[in-house]
Structure formats: C-alpha cells, structure tokens
C-alpha cells in the first residue's frame, strides 16, 4: 500500500471515529444528563433534518433554503473575490496602487461584516442586495490581502529573468505575477469562502424570507431547537463541501506546487 493511500485511510478512519464519538457523547448527554432540557438528541435532529429536506420549513424545504443561501454566497463571493483579487494584485505589484488603496483597505479589513448591517440596509434596503453586500465584504477582505501578499512575494530573480528575456511590464504582470500569486490567491479564496458562508447567517437576519440563516432565526423565534440544529448542521455540511471543492480546484490549478516526482 503506498503512503498516500495509507494516509487517506488513516484520516478517514480517524474522522469516522471522532464524529462517531462526538455523536455518542451528544446522545449520552441528552439521555443521561440535564442536557436533554436544552437540546434534542442526535437521532431526533437527524430524522427531523431528513423531514425538513423532503417536507417544508416555513414556505419551502430545507434544501431550497440551502440553495437560496448558496446562491447569495456564490454571488457575493464571486463579486468579492473578483474585486479583491484584482485590487490585491495591483496593490502587490504597483507601489502607487498600494499607496492609494492600502490605507483604506487596512481600515476596512478589520471591520466584521456584521457591523455593516445597518449601513447596508440604509444603502441597499432590505432586499437581496444588502445580503450580497455583506457576503461580498467577507470575501473581499481575505482575497485582497492574499492576492497582494502573493504578488509582492514573487521571486525578484524570476522577474529579472523574464525582463532579461524581453518581457515588458504588462507581460511581467500577466505571465509572471499572476501565475506566481495563484497559490496565495487560493489560500485567500479558501478563507474567503468560509467567511462568506459564515456571513450568510448574519446577512439573512436582514428581514429574510428564506435561507439557512432565516431557518435558524425562525427556529429561535419559535423556540424550536431541532430546527436550529438542523440549520446549523446544513451550514456545516455545505461549508465543508465548499471548502473541499475549493481544495480540489487548488490541487488542479497548483499541481506545479507539489514536490516529488
């Protein structure tokens, strides 16, 4: 058995054991301690989760809620990362762009998306735009920073080599800086997609009619802990899948970054 297969098998077995142990502890807590007064057991939650997926929560099924959240996340994330990567690369490569935009960026970056809720309502109203704006901000901050770091850390020897080989400044940007920054950009996208997905709950608290954030909010309003937990589990599963897809995309795009023959 080769090392990679062995490593994957060990990881899979450990994952099953740790998740199993967590569920067992949860089940034990809800059957033998006072935890049962605070939350339902995992069997109830998972059977309700299936019911919510085939039945309805509010006006539609949990799957439709998830798809609505996913749509918002993907639009916000794509816009945020597109603007973030472009700005980050420019700031990383060109001193003037960095001098102009970096002070504003450094001011905006630490502000959590949730702090923007009142302003986003004033600017965009209670509709979809305000929600997408919050997700945009979450994706933007992470992707900008990583794209800038990636563009700034390109080996100067490679830049000099390409210049010697006749590359002009625009060509250096497109054929050297952008590809060299790809691993760093992907690191930003990984964090960005997680932040965007995490922000969807906050975004859907702005007078939403659907979405996983709404499901949790509605569960809280109705004191329905099962619905809250079902929403949380769905967020976790989709977040995990998004991170996995991103990791696979990175493996394909950055296969050159792996050592060994």
């Amino acid at each position: 058995m080769n090392e990679k297969v062995k490593e994957t098998m060990i990881s899979a077995i450990c994952a099953v054991i740790s998740i199993g142990a967590f569920l067992l502890l949860w089940w034990w807590g809800t059957h033998f301690t006072t935890l049962s007064k605070l939350m339902p057991d995992p069997v109830t939650v998972f059977s309700s989760l299936i019911e919510y997926c085939v039945g309805t929560v509010g006006k539609c099924s949990l799957i439709v809620h998830m798809l609505n959240s996913l749509r918002r996340v993907l639009i916000g994330f794509l816009l945020g990362s597109l603007v973030g990567i472009s700005l980050g690369l420019l700031m990383g490569r060109y001193m003037l762009a960095r001098a102009i935009f970096n002070p504003i960026f450094r001011f905006i970056r630490p502000i959590p998306p949730i702090a923007w809720i009142p302003i986003s309502i004033v600017w965009f109203g209670l509709g979809e735009q305000a929600k997408i704006f919050l997700i945009f901000l979450a994706a933007f901050a992470n992707t900008t920073l990583n794209a800038m770091t990636g563009a700034m850390s390109v080996d100067p020897e490679i830049i000099n080599a390409s210049r010697m080989l006749g590359a002009k400044e625009r060509q250096i940007f497109t054929t050297i800086v952008i590809p060299a920054a790809v691993p760093s950009i992907f690191a930003g996208l990984q964090v960005g997609i997680s932040s965007a997905w995490a922000s969807v709950v906050a975004a859907e608290m702005i007078k939403a009619q659907n979405g996983l954030g709404w499901t949790i909010q509605a569960g809280m309003d109705n004191n329905n802990m099962t619905q809250i937990l079902a929403g949380i589990i769905m967020i976790g599963v989709v977040g995990f899948l998004l991170a996995y897809i991103m990791r696979k995309a990175e493996e394909v795009m950055c296969r050159w970054n792996k050592s060994g023959r």
């Binding site: 080996d155 020897e157 490679i158 000099n160 080599a161 390409s162 210049r163 010697m164 080989l165 006749g166 002009k168 050297i176 590809p179 060299a180 790809v182 950055c254 050159w256 970054n257």
Partner: peptide, 20 residues
Amino acid sequence: TKTQNIAYIFQGNSTMPWLT
C-alpha cells in the same frame, strides 16, 4: 534589453515553477 537579444542566467534558480 527590450530591443536587444540578451539572456541572463542567475546565480539561483530562476525557472518559473508553474511552467513545465
């Protein structure tokens, strides 16, 4: 260097890691 054909081989590795 833009109009004249000059090549430079550096001390360290200057290959582009993303290219074959």
